[in-house]
Amino acid sequence: MSDLDAIAQELDQRAMQVASASAQLVRAAAEALWTSTAADAFRARIDRRDVECLRLAAELRRAARTVSHYSDEVIAEKARLRRLERDAEHLVVQTAGDAAKVAHMVASWARL
């Protein structure tokens, strides 16, 4: 696993932590409220914050996917560059071999 994949995984974990913090918020609020009047007064606000937390968890998961995609691109780009490097090396070796052959031929002709 690349370091970038580790970051994507970390973001996924943070998304889970946000979702769990949201559940904790709803539970803590329910346990903090004893009268129905107060519960009614706070319900809308708690719901809104819960929705915001869940939206943020989704956003973190999206960010994780973006990083994951970026990681894939980087891996692909690195592979492509490695391939090019190999081709270049091959070309250099081949060219050197060809040059040696040509030199050898030239030397042979010279002796004749």
């Binding site: 370091d3 970051i7 970390e10 956003e59 973190l60 960010a63 973006t66 970026y70 691109e73 980087v74």
Partner: peptide, 28 residues
């Protein structure tokens, strides 16, 4: 995480992807 070393050094391979990832993390 947005400021992590890996995101920055790998930007040379995919600058657009790096900036997208940075932006997504920072926005969240």
């Amino acid at each position: 995480l947005a400021a992590s070393h890996e995101l920055v050094v790998n930007a040379v391979f995919d600058p657009v992807g790096a900036s997208r990832a940075e932006a997504a993390i920072l926005a969240a």
